[in-house]
Amino acid sequence: METLEQIKTKLEAAVPGARLEIIPNGSPSGPNSLLVDNEHAVAVAKFLQSSPALAFDYASNVTGVDWLDTTVKKTVKVKQMVEGVEKEVDQVLEEKKPGYLEVVYHLYSMELKHGPLVLRLRTEDRAGKARVPSLTPVWRGAEFQEREIFDLYGVTFQGHPDLRRILMWDGYQDFPMRKDYVEPDDYEYEPTAHGPVLQKAKQHQAEGGG
């Protein structure tokens, strides 16, 4: 198989305007992955599938990953007037990095027997704009797995032919695989008015659990 850099160069030539980025992987044997922007994802996928030298005809694994909002603390020296004298004072700046949901595709070629190529798509945020284009029209093997990500992570796949909940029941509200999911405490026992159980129930309700 060609290296990821060669594939990236090929893709940039074939799909004009596509913004691609190589995400490094720290594990000793795992491959690096390719981050694709949402507007050009379907065109990139179609090229990967149809190009005779690449021929990624098989989408093996499709999965979601939840990355929460993070705050990075930085200490900066700032000049300030303290009691009429200019002094250097340490100031802690908090930089907020918004979280996002990620969808990871592992692609293989059954024809040329190579792979994997790891594609990543990212949503803009974890709430209203949690959307990515669906790649099910290109690889049907993604159909149930994308439905599962919609079900458990709350990512909307635009262009998916049949986007419904798959493992949880219809009418269920939450997304259990998200990192900030709060487990309900009443699915195995009824909360009763006895110390620790009641405490736990109150705490969950305060945190937004059902």
Binding site: N25, S29, N61
Partner: peptide, 24 residues
């Protein structure tokens, strides 16, 4: 405690491709 990174391991299980994808 594995180092920060990710890996996908797959084998030919009797029913088909069984894979595990891990992020550390």
């Amino acid at each position: 405690r594995p180092k920060v990174g990710e890996a996908y391991g797959r084998i030919e299980a009797p029913k088909g491709e069984l894979g595990f994808y891990l992020i550390s």
